[in-house]
């Protein structure tokens, strides 16, 4: 069996569960136990997806742009934090507690405050997305940097390598799988962050659309938007996994699968 077929075969159980859940949902909605304005049936959501496609697409491009840009900001900030903390014990003491503290900020409240300060443009969205997405990137990269075999560092010292060259030749490449792991977590939370940010003050985007749709009882449209957001996050995750396999083949081939 080719590896492509095998991968499709591997997705079958998950697909089966989804089909069963959707069917159960459809049956429950058809039973008349619940008003379709409160819980639309899957076929109504599919219908909304099709009928509102122009509206959904326009708002999707806005949210997607925010998410992608936010992840780039988060990756740059997270990587910079991780490298700085790794290379300097002083910075570790200074920055690490702040890094953790940044994750205790209640995002929905902070998002509203940011809108007051930065307005309705893209700036507060990027801040929110970057704020929640940089943390997983920074932490997994930092862990991967710290996980480098101490014996490897000793070897580099007997090869007369400077701290910087040890970083360049040994630690930085070793940290790449960690960076990818962090980025994969980050894409999932980035989409959630974008929705929070849009709901706090925005006139476009899928988060905004959901916020508008619910009070108007356009629940099928809201569910359609949710579906798109989650499909988008899944697609980003898949793309990153693919990029990882292409960029870091060694992380997958070393004796009996991935070593970490």
């Amino acid at each position: 069996m080719s590896s492509g077929l095998r991968r499709v075969g591997g997705a079958l159980p998950a697909l089966a569960i989804v089909i069963v859940l959707v069917a159960a949902w459809e049956l429950y909605a058809a039973s008349g136990e619940v008003d379709s304005l409160l819980l639309p049936a899957p076929h109504e959501i599919a219908q909304a997806l099709w009928e509102d496609r122009a509206l959904l697409w326009d708002n999707f491009t806005v949210t997607a742009g925010e998410v992608l840009l936010g992840i780039v900001v988060a990756a740059v900030a997270g990587l910079a934090c991780a490298v700085a903390i790794h290379l300097s014990p002083t910075l570790r003491r200074a920055v690490y507690p702040l890094l953790v503290a940044s994750q205790t900020v209640p995002i929905p409240i902070f998002a509203s405050l940011l809108v007051v300060w930065l307005g309705f443009g893209i700036a507060p969205k990027l801040v929110i997305i970057a704020l929640i997405a940089f943390f997983p990137i920074a932490v997994t990269t930092l862990d991967a940097l710290a996980a480098v075999d101490p014996e490897q560092r000793r070897l580099m010292r007997t090869l007369d390598a400077s701290r910087l060259r040890t970083f360049r030749f040994v630690e930085a490449p070793a940290a790449l799988p960690g960076l990818f792991s962090g980025a994969k977590i980050a894409v999932a939370v980035a989409v959630i962050g974008a929705v929070f940010a849009e709901q706090s003050g925005s006139d476009k985007g899928l988060g905004h659309l959901v916020q508008q749709a619910v009070p108007q009882m356009l629940t099928a449209r809201a569910y359609a938007a949710v579906l798109i957001l989650s499909a988008f996050a899944i697609a980003l995750f898949g793309l990153l996994s693919l990029a990882e396999r292409i960029a870091l083949p060694w992380a997958f081939e070393s004796r009996g699968g991935r070593s970490r």
Partner: peptide, 9 residues
């Protein structure tokens, strides 16, 4: 060292 410590990449 005992282990070859070759860089896998």
């Amino acid at each position: 060292p005992q282990r070859d410590l070759l860089l896998p990449w």
